[in-house]
Design a protein around this nucleic acid. Structure first.
Lengths: 212, 212
DNA sequence: GTACATATGTAGCAAGCGGTACAAAAAATG
DNA sequence: CATTTTTTGTACCGCTTGCTACATATGTAC
């Protein structure tokens, strides 16, 4: 058994409180006093557990990513690339405007696009890029399987989706409503390329209409 | 003639230097020392001219908006809504990745989505919303004139465009290349609704093909 | 019990923050 | 010339920042 005085607070609860502060105020805007007050602990406890402010932030980031892992998997597991795109965009729209749970927007953007040094912005960009990569591989696979036309560019499609998603998060942080973002998601999906088989289907239907 | 010792620096040059600092470091991340050093002046000169840090930032914002006014007008003056959308998205892609002139991304996002108090984020959101409004009115006009189908929603289309634009700026700040964003713009434009006349034109062409 | 290991609260550190007091400097006005 | 008005550089203010020294509290191991 581990010896020593036991920790007097729940790490996960504390991380959730800290996440809320970083989310609302950004990395730089969140002061140690803000954080310790929200977490209900004193500075030495924070430093003993997370080393420093950046360590705390990275722990928050890990927890954030863990919480979003299920959603990403749901997106990747969708039967078609089109379904993946739809679940992704509509899910982001819903999650970015979820009234309880979290502030509007996305922690990966709110906490800092820019900073006195670039380390945190870079870290956040890395996390975002990971998801873009996952989508790209999903779509590359879809193209190999004929679910996407050969003319489709998996990298471009993935980039397009995360671009729209990031934009929706910006809109959400500025007060956009869930329904408004759902409409954006719907519009964005209209750009999705039609698969070869679907194209053929359409052509045949047209031909049938003309013949009939 | 105005009496007193003349100002020893060019206000517009100083604002450009300050803009660069705010752009790269964000509002909070830009310290007074950073700003005065970049502007080549001492603190008292800054305070005499711009009141305080927030005053300087608002002056920078005004200058930023003035510089972008021509581009916005070009977008609104385009002959069709579709052309407006294309000029807008491709222009944003180009401007967000312009290597000289400015850091990558967009000042209205880089300088702060979140902050210790919400005043700057709100101000930035207001500026972004202004452009969305201008686009909405452009598209509402286009619908009245038959350039957009009656089924099209001008507000949704405007929101969609600024969402994609904001997303592209996020991508640019994370290092995305100009060509990559141009592809995103191209994809996003594929979602643009077809006008009634264009639809009719297509149908007639199909009919002609079938007839021929 | 005693010894040890870890966590906690108080109190405070050096450094940097946004902002300013003050006197010298540089122009127009008479 | 002296006067007035504004800007400039130096030097500094009070405050907050991220962070820590230190003594005490609270657990396990023996």
């Amino acid at each position: 058994m581990k010896t020593g005085r036991p920790r007097g607070f729940c790490v996960e609860n504390a991380l959730d409180r800290a996440m809320d502060v970083f989310w609302r105020k950004g990395y730089q805007g969140a002061s140690l006093s803000d954080l310790t007050e929200a977490m209900g602990i004193n500075a030495p406890s924070l430093y003993a557990c997370f080393d420093n402010k950046e360590g705390l932030f990275r722990a928050v980031l890990d927890r954030y990513e863990a919480a979003g892992k299920g959603f990403l998997q749901e997106v990747l597991d969708a039967p078609t690339s089109r379904a993946s795109a739809e679940i992704f965009l509509k899910g982001v729209a819903a999650r970015a405007t979820d009234p309880d749970n979290h502030p509007p927007g996305c922690l990966l953007l709110q906490s800092g696009l820019a900073g006195e040094d670039q380390r945190i912005p870079n870290e956040l960009a890395r996390h975002r890029a990971e998801k873009e990569l996952a989508l790209r591989e999903r779509f590359a696979c879809a193209r190999r399987e004929g679910d996407l036309p050969q003319s489709a560019d998996p990298a471009a499609l993935a980039r397009y989706l995360v671009t729209v998603a990031n934009g929706m998060c910006v809109q959400a942080s500025a007060g956009a409503q869930a329904e408004e973002l759902q409409m954006v998601a719907g519009l964005a999906l209209a750009a999705w390329p039609t698969s070869e088989t679907a194209k053929r289907g359409k052509k045949e239907k047209h031909k049938a209409d003309a013949d009939g």
